[in-house]
Design a protein around this nucleic acid. Structure first.
Lengths: 355, 355
DNA sequence: ACACATCGCGTCAACGTTGACGTAATCTAG
DNA sequence: CTAGATTACGTCAACGTTGACGCGATGTGT
């Protein structure tokens, strides 16, 4: 009965489990359950973990005691011995950006369905802060992590990857335990061009971001490639790089129209710059989509309610988060099949009133 | 030197710390550092935790070894013995809602500055899901948690509060270890009314949410109270309850104007319904703010870029999250001063072009 | 010179759980 | 009927850390 030597010293407590069967003040442990049933903690552990090596009869009695004592496994203790905490990290630059908020939303839900919990951290796109949070997450013993990397932190990520598998969002790092999930921005750009051409536009321009490093300029690549395919032999369309803001989009579009007034179709870096483009059109008395058609990117909530509602390329950010979780779980699977190959998720053309 | 008996069995590993001084494959522990310096793990622990009971000389040698071995405390092990994990929960209904995203942003940053990490969970406003995530968080040994409660879950929260202090957002629960942080919605409504009256409007109407339970209708309370104070003895202004969506705001405003065409000022439940109100105005050829002035609530990002930009009552959601964290840390402080009293954060009138 | 405090450590157990291994009782095969 | 397998457990140590306590060496007051 009294397998637990500590019990003998503390049986004077009120509500000691053996006496009343009520949950005690402190959370109950394997020992409490074991004492109540009259087996060893190890047997209770076996039942809890669905191992084998116990009779149906004891299984039922253990389950009953677990219910009565409201026993829940202590994941901290379990983590110490198994070296697995069933926690994941999710490191983004800024949660107030809806892109990351929805990414986090999808990731967190996918994690929960796999019985994992996620630590969420913001870096403000600063290398120091990213190093800090990753360090902190490692101290907490996370089993894996999703990272939208701050710029120029590949080496830091490689160091972390020695302990913890990493899935990067929209960024590739060459390391056996780092893989990538991203959106098919090239295809998105192609869809935008094809749609504009479908609508009868032949003179196109693009508003791009001047902050994108060259390896993240895949929208531009897709834009030019699609144009080349549809209008072989004609001069390349114009691209103006600007800040990816409302005003940036506005001024860049004004510049495009100044330099070539025959442009009737704009492909914008994202929805905010697209709205800037629309404002630039109305600034000079052009109607949208009559005189100028505009396609955005992302499909932020704002896009659907703007006047006119914006045609855009939709990125399924929740799915991005979900897939990222699935990939990191796969890497943790430990099957020495090497890292899962980078995944590129499809995007979708959403036609609204701006084209 | 070889205080750690496990070493003897594994000294054939490459890079064993005693031999090379390089970090090993596995993360180094107190034992590794201790062995390297030639002291006991307990002494290293003392240095790490800034306790006392060691000489300056050993302190330096320990710190040096920590650096060389890249030692980081294992918070899982520490948590097991101290019963404190330095983790907090943050339970909201839906992260893709910018309100919660920014709340989470503020909370997470406040947590990090206090050297805590936060588990983020979504409940979809479902009681079951909330119970699940809270259970899971308890198993992980969180030290405290912020909850935006799903409807009708007070009892569930009280049960959790037995183990873990809770700060609720915008909701009160009567329990010694549950307290509340909220925004001053009543004052916000008052500010909206006063602003409209300042602008010369005397006939007001309000678009409210039909989903708000009676204890969350503080905007309506403030609206009526302010009106009563400014126009004593006159009939109460009209309130129409609708779905808090764009279309809801549009139709509710149409109804208000149908029933009383002399209305010139609208106070809307949130920014989205306010935009609906503006659309309703333009539907019938009214100009904003010329014929109809509209005040929203929340100050979502969209509010600033809509045409016309929206006058609104700003809720500082990041600060809400930050204060929530500070309150839960205070409750954990364990000082038996009872729970901190509920906090109500101020809101702010942001005047733009819609009034 | 002696009692006593302080310093600078070390030792041991415990936190709650699981991995490795042991073992008595029962079953199975020949 | 007996050797060997199987079942249903129990025992013990370990995960990495800290709390409680011990202890010898050195300082301090009288």
């Amino acid at each position: 009965m009294t397998n637990n030597p500590a019990d003998s010293t503390s049986e004077s407590l009120p509500d000691s489990p053996g006496a009343t069967g009520q949950p005690a003040d402190r959370r109950s442990t394997l020992h409490d359950v074991a004492a109540r049933v009259g087996v060893s903690p190890r047997t209770v552990s076996r039942v809890v973990n669905n191992e084998e090596g116990f009779s149906e009869a004891t299984r039922e009695r253990v389950l009953e005691a677990i219910e009565e004592l409201e026993y829940r496994p202590n994941l901290v203790a379990r983590g110490l011995v198994t070296q697995q905490t069933r926690t994941l990290g999710l490191v983004v630059t800024d949660l107030s950006d809806p892109f990351f908020a929805e990414l986090a939303n999808g990731a967190q839900r996918a994690a929960i369905t796999n019985r994992y919990n996620v630590f969420l951290c913001a870096t403000d796109n600063e290398a120091d802060q990213q190093a800090n949070v990753l360090d902190s997450l490692r101290s907490h013993g996370i089993d894996g992590t999703i990272v939208f990397p701050a710029t120029d932190t590949d080496d830091g990520l490689r160091r972390v990857a020695a302990d913890v598998p990493i899935v990067c969002v929209d960024h590739e790092v060459d390391h056996p335990r780092i893989t990538t999930v991203s959106s098919d921005l090239v295809a998105g750009a192609r869809m935008a061009v094809e749609h504009l051409v479908d609508r009868g536009h032949t003179k196109l321009g693009m508003v791009a971001s001047k902050f994108s490093p060259s390896d993240r300029r895949r929208r531009e690549v897709g834009f030019l490639a699609a144009h080349r395919k549809l209008f072989p032999g004609t001069p390349e369309p114009m691209i103006v790089r600007t800040e990816p803001t409302l005003e940036g989009g506005r001024s860049a579009t004004a510049e495009l129209l100044d330099r070539d007034p025959s442009i009737t179709g704009i492909f914008a870096y994202n929805d905010i710059t697209a709205i800037g483009a629309i404002l630039a059109a109305t600034d000079r008395g052009l109607t949208v989509p009559g005189d100028l058609a505009v396609v955005g990117f992302d499909d932020v909530p704002l896009a659907a309610v703007f006047g006119p509602p914006l045609t855009t390329i939709r990125i399924d950010r929740e799915r991005l988060g979900q897939v990222a979780i699935e990939m990191v779980l796969a890497m943790m699977g430990g099957s020495r099949t090497g890292r899962p190959s980078p995944q590129i998720l499809p995007v979708e053309l959403v036609v609204r009133a701006s084209t």
